[in-house]
Design a protein around this nucleic acid. Structure first.
Ligand SMILES: [Zn+2]
Ligand SMILES: [Zn+2]
Length: 815
DNA sequence: AGCACGCCGACT
DNA sequence: GTCGGCGTGCTC
């Protein structure tokens, strides 16, 4: 079996005789593990080979009647553990919604044989015993009760005195949602019986009232079937009727009380639209996709922003479902909005399951079960939906295929949802369609080399023109002193004109807060985070300095930490400042901001979207959030506040990212009218990336970028594995990293290793980061054995030199 | 990962 | 004296 723990191996347990018939591969079982009494794991296989080298324990219980996981999932998870060099248990941890795991807790109960008079008790002990007479308690409860952190000694003593008993309480985390309902007892559902009953109740007006209300709501005689589902009990309390009368009616068997398990997932209207209306261009693209899928497993759909890729997806998904297969649509987290979900619901109704990371555990369990029970044949979801229990997947669509957020960053498995989905498709023998307006270099390359099919959509839906893109040369404007509060005259006058025409504006700046740093004008000191080597971002609204990496906050200092000067200035601009300053420049404009800080509350995102779409906002300032999937007909101007920042990230994808980000946000302009304008503020207008963006020249951009990648041996020509050594002590981190580098060079060749070097952010959450890169050629024999070698060297180095003061992270296909 | 064991510093 | 810190080792 697999346990959801970061351990490399599987574990073998004995199945007790009485459970033999109930266990099968894929079932969740509870086992004792080490000192832990109950751990939930999943059965991988059942065999008859009793291990010779150790004693097996018996499993305790089986949680499932039907297995939670199937063989496709195992195959997929095995691939993932191997490819991303992590433990099978780590993959399981990522795959299983935590609602599937058991929670277990030690509970304390009073020993029924305990005689209080027979022993001496301290004051604290007495208080605990007193409380235990009415309740069972957890360790935490007791700690609270006696206001003391260590309770272990007291508990030990009480056990010795035979006052209490310990037991382990295990519960399934998932709990179905149950509602209490009532319905009329069967015998009263005929007109005659009902009339008699009414008469009997003549002298009991309250009860009669309740019955009347029920009949109003459930016309038992006219629609006989209506009595079966009954009505929620809370209906009566809500409408102010006497609950005691209702209780009496239930007691007298007039009403029958029963419970019903209901879904947490809101019921959706049945599908209304059965066919998608495709434009000529879309129809042609769809036909081309289908044709290419005859001979290829994957097709890249390269459609400019606003070309209507979603309709094509819908058509393809419908087709796949009609063939009796399941379909999966993957979206980046920020793109899975209610807007898109509602649009899909119109076509797929309740045959569609939504798998979102914002869902509660219980909801995720319900989607998982729903898929198993055949209630869904189409799932729209984020990265982690690749783990769902599909049984006959026919089509996977990966939208916004280029998105970096498809890569899981921190806990292992550090998988790329796109690449994992491609593997999932292979396992199911399914087809894959990857969509993007700005395909990743890797994907375009795969299509160009004929491994994948390729379908371009060159025009926007309805032949609407692409926006006109202009550059605002900040160097020239600064020299001419036409820059106000960071806004070039070019951009500012365009904003004015757009608002005057009653159209809307989006301003994009990929940085939240007011200003990325505070600086002392006298000594140049910059307040830094105490745990990270980054400056603290100034947040005006909350009036604090905040670290965007670890969350550390402090009050805004009144004077410099080092020289006590009061002359502190803000440096740089985040969305909050831009909002502020633009309001000063345009006092009449209705300006709002959309970033992590303004959308933290539950419905704030939806509210902003609604307000903007109803034109209650003229200018929306935002971070990445405004680049994806938003479809506002009235937006005619997009301003990119600072295009240069992203270009200089120390990362081989910096240019690709810049290109994608700007093209995506530009795509918000003029989606309906075709009158869209984009203005990009840059101090380097001669940088080639801007010419490609301006001329909508993806191919030019691609060719140049591919050449660079080949020159410098980066993907798609190589595979980059990134290794970070984390340690609380910088010297130790460096020492280990150097040692590791030497061993790796020795094992797989020195020209494949780059580094070690201090990471671009040296310290994060008090851990020093030293990194090194391993570049492996694209198509080499024995790739997996080289990777395994790397993993075992890393593992070794970790146990030898790191211990618990740090860790070493392997990131396959870093991005 | 979590849990126990074991070995050293600073408190009643 | 012992309480509690964390380094180390193990889990079928
Ligand atoms: Zn100073
Ligand atoms: Zn920090």
């Amino acid at each position: 079996m697999v346990l959801p723990l970061p351990l490399p191996q599987l574990f073998t347990y004995k199945i007790p005789d009485q459970l033999v018939d109930t266990v099968s591969a894929g079932c969740r079982i509870i086992v004792p593990f080490g000192q832990r009494k109950f751990v939930t794991g999943v059965v991988r296989s059942i065999h008859q080979h009793a291990p010779a080298s150790y004693q097996t324990k018996e499993l305790i219980d089986v949680l499932d009647v039907t297995p939670t996981m199937n063989a496709y999932q195992f195959k997929f998870m095995d691939w993932m553990a191997e490819y991303y060099l992590c433990a099978p248990g780590e993959v399981l941890q990522a795959a299983l919604p935590s609602g599937f795991k058991l929670s277990s807790e030690s509970m304390i109960q009073l020993n029924p044989l305990f005689q209080e008079a027979s022993v001496d008790l301290t004051e604290k002990e007495r208080r605990i015993i007193q409380e235990l007479r009415s309740n069972t308690l957890s360790y935490k409860d007791i700690s609270k009760l006696i206001d003391q952190s260590s309770v272990q000694p007291i508990i030990k003593l009480l056990i010795q005195k035979q006052a209490i008993l310990l037991f382990e309480e295990v519960k399934e985390k998932y709990s179905p949602k149950i509602i209490s309902k009532i319905r009329l007892a069967d015998q009263y559902t005929t007109p005659h019986a009902l009339a008699n009953l009414m008469q009997e109740l003549d002298k009991k007006p309250r009860q009669q009232e309740v019955l009347m209300r029920y009949l109003q709501e459930v016309p038992v005689i006219q629609t006989p079937g209506a009595n079966i589902p009954g009505i929620e009990k809370t209906f009566f309390t809500a409408s102010g009727l006497s609950t005691s009368s209702l209780q009496t009616l239930i007691k007298n068997k007039v009403f029958e009380a029963f419970e019903e398990v209901i879904s947490r997932l809101s019921y959706r209207a049945d599908e209304k639209k059965s066919v998608v209306e495709l434009s000529e261009q879309q129809e042609a693209a769809k036909e081309s996709i289908l044709l290419q899928l005859d001979t290829k497993d994957s097709v890249l759909l390269h459609g400019v922003t606003g070309s209507g890729k979603t309709e094509i997806y819908i058509d393809l998904i419908k087709r796949s479902i009609d063939n009796g297969s399941q379909a999966l649509l993957l979206l980046p987290e920020i793109a899975l909005t209610t807007q898109i979900v509602q649009r899909l619901e119109e076509y797929f109704g309740d045959r569609m399951g939504v798998y979102h990371s914002k869902f509660s555990d219980n909801e995720r369990v319900e989607v998982w079960r729903g898929l198993q029970e055949g209630r869904y044949d189409f799932i729209v979801g984020v990265r982690s939906s690749v783990f769902l229990p599909f049984t006959h997947l026919g089509l996977i669509i990966i939208d916004e295929e280029h998105e970096a957020s498809y890569k899981q960053q921190d806990p292992a498995p550090r998988y790329n949802g796109r690449d994992a989905a491609l593997m999932l498709a292979r396992i199911h023998n399914a087809k894959t369609v990857l969509g993007s307006a700005t395909p990743s270099i890797e994907s375009r390359d795969a299509a160009l080399k004929n491994r994948w099919g390729y379908v371009p959509l060159l025009n926007r839906y309805g032949n609407v023109s692409l926006p006109e893109i202009r550059l605002a040369d900040m160097r020239v404007e600064r020299k001419n002193k036409t820059v106000q509060q960071g806004f070039s005259l070019t951009l500012l006058s365009a904003i004015r004109e757009t608002i005057a025409n009653k159209k809307q504006v989006i301003i994009f700046q990929n940085r939240r807060g007011y200003a990325p740093m505070l600086e002392c004008e006298d000594c140049g000191n910059i307040p830094m985070c105490t745990s990270c080597s980054v400056s603290l971002t100034y947040h005006q609204f909350s009036h604090e300095l905040r670290c965007h990496y670890c969350g550390f906050t402090r009050k805004v200092p009144q004077k410099c930490d080092s020289c006590s000067s009061h002359r502190l200035k803000t440096v740089g601009s985040g969305t909050e400042r831009i909002e502020d300053e633009l309001q000063i420049l345009l006092p009449e404009a209705r300006i709002r901001r959309m970033d992590l800080d303004t959308t933290r509350k539950k419905n704030s995102f939806a509210e902003l979207i609604t307000a903007f779409s109803q034109h209650e906002i003229d200018i929306l300032i935002g971070t990445q959030m405004v680049t994806k999937g938003l479809d506002f007909a009235n937006v005619e101007l997009v301003g990119v506040y600072d295009a240069d920042r992203m270009l200089y990230f120390p990362d081989f994808r910096a240019i690709e990212r810049t290109y994608q980000m700007i093209v995506q946000v530009s795509g918000r302009a003029g989606r309906k009218s075709g009158e869209g304008k984009v203005i990009i503020q840059t101090a380097q207008p001669e940088h080639p990336v801007f010419a490609f963006i301006k001329n909508n020249d993806y191919d030019g951009f691609f060719t140049r970028e591919l050449y660079e990648r080949e020159m410098y041996h980066y993907p798609p020509f190589t595979r980059v594995t990134h290794i970070s050594v984390l340690h609380l002590d910088k010297k130790e981190a460096l020492k280990t990293a150097h040692g590791l580098t030497a061993k790796l060079k020795d094992a797989i060749g020195s020209k494949r290793i780059l580094g070690p070097q201090v990471a671009s952010i040296e310290k994060l959450r008090n851990y020093y980061h030293i990194e090194l890169f391993i570049k492996l050629e694209k198509d080499i024999k024995g790739l997996q054995s080289i990777k395994n070698k790397i993993a075992s060297i890393v593992q070794n180095e970790h146990t030898l030199h790191i211990g618990s003061k740090g860790r070493i992270i392997i990131d396959t296909d870093q991005n």
